[in-house]
Design a protein around this nucleic acid. Structure first.
Length: 418
RNA sequence: GGAGGGGUGGCAGAGCGGUCAAAUGCAACGGACUGUAAAUCCGUCGACUUCGGUCUACGAAAGUUCAAAUCUUUCCCCCUCCA
């Protein structure tokens, strides 16, 4: 195995972030020089503001940037205000819907909020900043762009790009608009190079084509070597992308998902994913991870608890993580109720049907669903199975000022009498 | 512009006048087994319901029929080939 010199490169390799690099030796050398002289290297990670928060599925390259910064380098977080108006064809068969300005602005604010949990922002020499490619694209004119950038691209080459090729092979439609995406991304890279001296792009493996588009443009137009570095697309044992729970995204921003649910996502990770997740989603040292990964069978739950705690700590802060952990321990290990569970205030004077209770707290979307679940034995009140769908909750069910609702093994919530 | 093909539940994909709330697969959910894991097995999977039924749904609108996802007309959208 090649020995790397830079701290960053070694970290990436050891923790399983390293997938591919445009010039592994060159990039390593470059980073090493920067680290040795204390000059931050500048690298960027791009994302399109198609949603108002990141979720766990986006996190791998963000964690890479976190390490990048910890190694003394400067992360630029590019938001694609311009490219969101076009849509990235990578890995998709369908044109994305165009977003209006208001939505884009809101999404960008959401992304900033997400990023701020993982990176230090500010004016310091290795502090992170947000850049929006709308700033340089909004005034670009078509002929100028064709002349200045278009001349460096060969269509022959563009057609061989994976995302383009697969669309053509599967006979899926691809508009000219989308076809241009790689030019825009390539241009971003060179603009950031000119404005900030940015020579590195970090991204998920699916962005490879867009990265090389940028490095090539850099070489041809500015005669400079730019570097691209990608992370693997991580999947669980079933081969599915990480970051979904119960079919819903595991959001980074707290208004979209409670810290308790965030914690539970990692707590419920599969055995085979524990070591990988510890390496990628926590700051724990490799020595500690090694110890945790050696745990087997029941004991691996201890590793999962630490994983969940550490991951939540980074994203939601230590206090939130602690609270989430307490709630989880109380709920699952001690059979008590914890404060972080979803709760709802209700007036029990006239009684409340179980059906309404479960719909109102958001566990079910219809009364029919609750009925079905009662028949299947999945509904409990204060840890007692409910078999009667006409059951009405009353003050007699209140214990310590609350009623505990449970659905299945994992969903728990509280009703508090108002 | 011309000629064909198509739009069905979260997705994929059958159905082509009544027996269709719509086969099948995936996803999801509940149960059993467990370790808040995985795998496996069983069950569920439009809404409302006094559990008898009722209502809303197969791109949109209008129509034919006792009866339409299925037939007709118009419109919208997508794909393929030709120009």
């Amino acid at each position: 195995m090649v020995q790397f010199k830079s701290q960053f490169f070694n970290l990436m390799l050891e923790r399983g972030f390293y997938n591919q690099c445009t010039n592994e030796q060159g990039f390593d050398e470059y980073l090493y020089e920067c680290e040795k002289t204390g000059t931050p290297a500048v690298g960027y990670l791009g994302s399109d503001p198609t949603g108002d928060s990141l979720h766990v599925g986006h996190l791998v390259p963000v964690m890479m940037m976190r390490w990048f910064q910890k190694c003394g380098h400067k992360p630029l977080m590019l938001v694609g205000g311009a490219t969101a108006r076009i849509g990235d064809p990578s890995g998709k068969d369908r044109l994305r819907p165009f977003l209006d300005d208001e939505t884009i602005a809101r999404n960008i604010a959401g992304l900033k909020k997400s990023y701020a949990k993982f990176l230090k922002f500010g004016d310091g020499k290795n502090e992170s900043i947000i850049v929006d490619n709308w700033d340089w694209f909004k005034d670009v004119n078509y002929l100028g762009f064709l002349r200045d950038i278009g001349t460096y691209y060969s269509v022959n080459k563009m057609l061989t790009m994976d995302s383009v090729k697969s669309r053509l092979e599967r006979e899926q439609p691809m508009s000219f608009l989308e076809f241009n995406y790689q030019l825009l991304q390539g241009y971003d890279f060179t603009v950031l190079y000119q404005k900030y001296g940015c020579r590195a792009q970090i991204a998920g493996a699916d962005q490879w084509g867009n990265i090389t588009s940028g490095t090539e443009l850099g070489r041809r137009k500015h005669n400079v070597e730019l570097f691209g570095f990608t992370s693997p697309i991580i999947t669980d044992s079933a081969g599915k992308k990480m970051g979904k729970s119960e079919g819903n995204a595991v959001w980074i921003n707290d208004e979209k998902l409670s810290s308790y649910d965030y914690y539970q996502y990692f707590r419920n990770i599969g055995d085979t994913e524990v070591e990988m997740c510890l390496k990628i989603f926590t700051d724990l040292s490799l020595d500690e991870i090694k110890k945790l990964a050696a745990l087997k069978d029941k004991e691996i739950n201890e590793a999962k608890k630490i994983l969940a705690f550490e991951a939540t700590k980074i994203c939601r802060g230590e206090a939130e993580a602690r609270q989430a952990q307490e709630t989880a321990v109380k709920t699952f290990e001690l059979g008590q109720t914890g404060g972080e569970l979803p709760s709802l205030e209700v007036n029990l004077a006239d009684g409340l049907s179980v059906l309404d209770a479960f719909v109102n707290i958001g566990f079910c979307t219809s009364k029919g669903e609750v009925r079905r679940l009662i028949k299947q034995g999945g509904v409990r009140i204060n840890d007692t199975d409910i078999c009667d769908e006409n059951y009405r909750l009353s003050n007699a069910d209140v214990k310590n000022g609350q009623i505990k609702l449970s659905l299945g093994k994992k969903k728990h919530g509280l009703l508090k009498s108002a």
